[in-house]
Amino acid sequence: MKVNVDLRLKDIPGQLVAALEPISKYDGNIRGVVHHHDDRVGGRITVNVIFEVRSEQSLDKILSTWKEGEVDIAKIDAFFETYPIQYLLVGSITSKELESITKGLEAMENVASIEIRYTGTANSSSRAALVTGKASKKETLTTLESFFKQRADKHNYMLIRGLD
């Protein structure tokens, strides 16, 4: 997860180091720090920090530490990184099979969104179906690959993956 936060810090030595320390402590990875000296509110200056954390739990711990340390958070945005799901299926793909794929993907954890487009009629031996979407965890991509591979092997159609 990528986090973009504006902190308001007292303009005295040691404040920035103290504010950044919890990020490293909870396995965050600082990507950028920008001081806005001209943006003063109540004697405090604004510092923009961009960092990555592995989980919401880590972010919660960092936010709690800041709260306890009276670090003033002016603005915060958190973005979840997503990973593209891209599979193209070619061959004899029945409507029942498309339904099973949809159900299987809906039941899978960390599949954030999914869309299936297909061509041809249900009894066609050369139907094509394109499955696209997003996963919220990288590990899910491995699960997805096994899922599609097993189905393609079992039902004898061709599977075309996207580039990783």
Binding site: Q86, L88, V90, G91, R117, Y118, T119, G120, S126, R127, A128, A129, L130, T132, M158, I160, G162
Partner: peptide, 22 residues
């Protein structure tokens, strides 16, 4: 190893709609 002989024009076209080539 998987070859290309089973790829249909429909499959190529679906990928193309999503700005992808095979």
């Amino acid at each position: 190893r998987t070859g290309i002989r089973s790829i249909t024009e429909d499959a190529i076209s679906l990928a193309s709609e999503q700005h992808m080539v095979v």
